[in-house]
Design a protein around this nucleic acid. Structure first.
Length: 700
DNA sequence: GAGCACTGC
């Protein structure tokens, strides 16, 4: 601890914090900023007037850093030093130093907007620019203005452009603290490889044969490429003459790997053995592998982006930024001097790569964040002019307002409604919180709680990619899982949880049915949390117990589908007349299809329901609706009428010159106009699919 | 008839 670089700057830091409300601290990896900054300020009396809060973008980081600081101060974790993450608050009235995720701090600021328990707020890892950190940056900027001058804010980051943040905070001082990284030699390719899998393979084997010991970390974009490269590496390593070089062991590393497979990279390798770790960007920030000396960087990353005009997400392979490239290279210099092989030329890095990764706030739907900001009732802050470090596009904000309007969270003037206020209490995306509120009025809250919890855990729920022998969750005739009774995926998710619930949460049930235990337990936790919040909100006692209940009835399903229709008013699609393609009602009307993994069933003529709601639009090989539920026309009609009356200009609080498209209204009200142009190709493909479906049905 | 970068309240 004594040799951490940051401690040499202790006096300088304290002196600067004393004189300024906001200080930016740029500290490279290994500087000790996450563990030492709080202790330095504690030593100099900053915990006398309040608690020091340090935010982290990730739960594991909040817990592990808190644990280390408690150790260094020789106190019991949860007393003087504690942490707070979702589902787990390990703090007490004694706590002076509190580590928490930035999401938890945002929740706290809902009930205590001044955050006046805190004498100091440290926003750590701000360079990652998570959505929550970006919103906190705007909020603390305001707090600095309105709270007493002894309130201090520190923004710390590894590579963040210090000048930009300093400018954002009216020219506050920037301190640089050196890190403890060893030098990393950067080697560039002469040109972009045709296949970066082949190219990585060649470079990795070259290193293995020629270079001294040290592990190799290879950055790929996704599971598919990782698996391909792993098997090629295994083959190649086997073919090397025995005794010609040291042994090798090859690990894949990505998010959908079960935890026990992920932690293998933390156990030390056998002696005289080199490890190859083939990873996604999970190894860029979330997981740090010791012993890496060589990094191979493909220069690509897979990133999810949101298109506010179509409401559609896509998962694209894109070029990384300079910041990311340097973060990857830094992974080679943690234990001793290393080398980074970039599979792209210097000119590409210099001229083509963006300086920094596009912040999340510019890549995601903002409905939740805008509702959050509206619920804070900041009299001096106009949402559309909220002070963001990097502002989202006006199109994106406009989209968020429209979404909130259709689900009654804001009125036609853009003011938050009673429903919107209740929604903001719930840690859910707006469509789901709206569904819960409707279900509460509707008499199907228990079912809705389950579905909403299942949906918010969906990605952790799915079984690891099915091998041909594995049972698939959906559309498999021999699967034991319920099928949604024809109504679609939401009902199936409800039935799945109810089945597990009836076994008294038996782990073997999960295994037998191909569900991930970890994901199902998370659903249970989310459900319990939502239950408590709903109990608090409602005055009446709620019927929300799931355990020991009989299965839901068709009548329950009907109520639930109706609540889903209200909550997903933005996400309704209408089937085309002659085939099973759908067009979306809100957003620019577009042709989409039900995702093939859906359990939604067709009628005897092979036709799907006339109206469905969907949880998400995702463009992969084609635009798909994922998680689809059948709804009825009479439920959709009032929503359609509401859409026709939409006036975007009013929503955003009067004429706003930044909005370029006030004509949006006419565009949206054309719902009853002719079907949008569809290329013949798509039409005929859908027609062919329907014929195949009918043929299969006839065979049975 | 297709597909899952990574977080988080």
């Amino acid at each position: 601890m004594a040799n951490l670089p940051i401690l040499q700057f202790e006096e300088k830091i304290v002196e600067t914090v004393e004189k300024n409300s906001v200080v930016v601290i740029i500290g490279e990896t290994g500087s000790g900023k996450s563990t030492q900054l709080s202790q330095i300020l504690h030593r100099h009396g900053y915990t006398k007037s309040g608690v020091i809060a340090i935010t982290q973008p990730r739960r594991v980081a909040a817990v592990s850093v808190a644990r280390r600081v408690a150790q260094e101060l020789d106190v019991t974790l949860g007393e003087d030093v504690g942490y707070a993450i979702r589902f787990e608050d390990r703090t007490s009235s004694k706590t002076r130093i509190k580590y928490l995720t930035d999401g938890v701090l945002l929740r706290e600021s809902l009930s205590n907007p001044m955050l006046d328990d805190y004498s100091v707020i440290i926003l750590d890892e701000a360079h990652e620019r998570s959505l929550n950190t970006d919103i906190l940056l705007g909020l603390v900027k305001r707090l600095v203005r309105i709270r007493a001058s002894n309130f201090k804010v520190l923004i710390t980051s590894a590579t963040l452009d210090g000048e930009k943040v300093s400018e954002f905070f009216s020219g506050c001082p920037v301190l640089n603290v050196p890190g403890k990284l060893y030098p990393v030699e950067i080697l560039y390719s002469k040109e972009r490889p045709v296949s970066y899998i082949e190219s990585s393979l060649k470079v990795a084997i070259d290193i293995h044969v020629r270079e001294p010991e040290g592990d190799i970390l290879i950055f790929m974009t996704g599971q598919d490429d990782i698996e391909k490269l792993v098997s090629k590496l295994e083959e190649k390593v086997r073919s090397l003459a025995e005794g010609s070089c040291m042994d090798a062991i090859i690990y894949p590393l990505h998010g959908s790997l079960p935890p026990e497979m992920q932690v293998r990279v933390f156990s030390p390798p056998p002696p005289n053995c080199r490890r190859f770790i083939v990873a996604t960007n999970i190894a860029e920030t979330s997981l740090t592998v010791d012993g890496v000396v060589y990094v191979i960087d493909s220069g690509y990353v897979k990133q999810r982006q949101y298109n506010p005009s179509s409401g559609m997400y896509s998962l694209d392979v894109i070029q990384i930024s300079k910041v990311q490239a340097n973060q990857r290279a830094g992974r080679a210099g943690r234990t001793r001097p290393g080398k980074c092989y970039r599979l792209y030329p210097l000119a590409v890095y210099r001229d083509d790569f963006l300086d920094a990764t596009i912040p999340e706030i510019q890549r995601t739907s903002l409905a939740g964040s805008v509702l959050y900001l509206k619920s804070l009732d900041l009299p001096d802050i106009d949402i559309l002019k909220f002070d963001f470090l990097d502002a989202p596009s006006s199109e994106s904000l406009e989209d968020a307002l429209k979404q909130l309007y259709f689900i009654d969270a804001i009125d036609e003037n853009g003011a938050i409604t009673r429903i919107g206020r209740t929604m903001s209490e719930l840690p859910l995306e707006p469509s789901l919180s709206r569904t819960l509120i409707e279900a509460n009025e509707n008499g199907c809250l228990s079912q809705a709680l389950t579905v909403v919890a299942m949906l918010s855990a969906e990605t952790t729920l799915l079984p690891t990619r099915s091998k041909p022998s594995d049972k698939k969750r959906k559309h498999d005739d021999d699967s034991n899982l319920p099928n949604g009774s024809g109504f679609g995926d939401h009902i199936q998710l409800l039935q799945i949880f109810e089945s597990w619930d009836r076994t008294n949460y038996d782990p073997t049930w999960c295994k037998e049915n191909g569900m991930q235990m970890r994901g199902m337990v998370f659903v249970k936790d989310v459900r319990r949390q939502l239950c408590q919040i709903m109990q608090k909100i409602s005055k009446d006692r709620l019927e929300v117990g799931a355990h020991g209940r009989k299965s839901s009835s068709r009548d329950d399903y009907r109520k639930l589908r109706k609540a889903l229709c209200v909550g997903n008013a933005n996400q309704i699609a209408e089937r085309m007349l002659r085939h099973n393609g759908y067009r979306t009602l809100s957003f620019q009307s577009q042709l989409v299809q039900v995702h093939p993994s859906s359990v939604l069933s067709a009628d005897n003529d092979g036709m799907l329901p006339n109206y469905v709601v969907y949880h998400e639009l995702i463009s992969t090989t084609r635009p798909f609706m994922r998680n689809v539920c059948a709804v009825e026309m009479s439920w959709v009609a009032p929503i359609k009428r509401k859409m026709e009356k939409l006036n975007v200009r009013k929503l955003s609080g009067g004429p706003a010159p930044s909005f370029k498209k006030p004509e949006e209204k006419t565009e949206l009200s054309k719902n009853d106009a002719e079907t949008p142009a569809v290329s013949e190709n798509v039409e005929s493909r859908i027609e062919a699919a329907r014929e195949r479906f009918l043929a299969r049905k006839g065979q049975k």
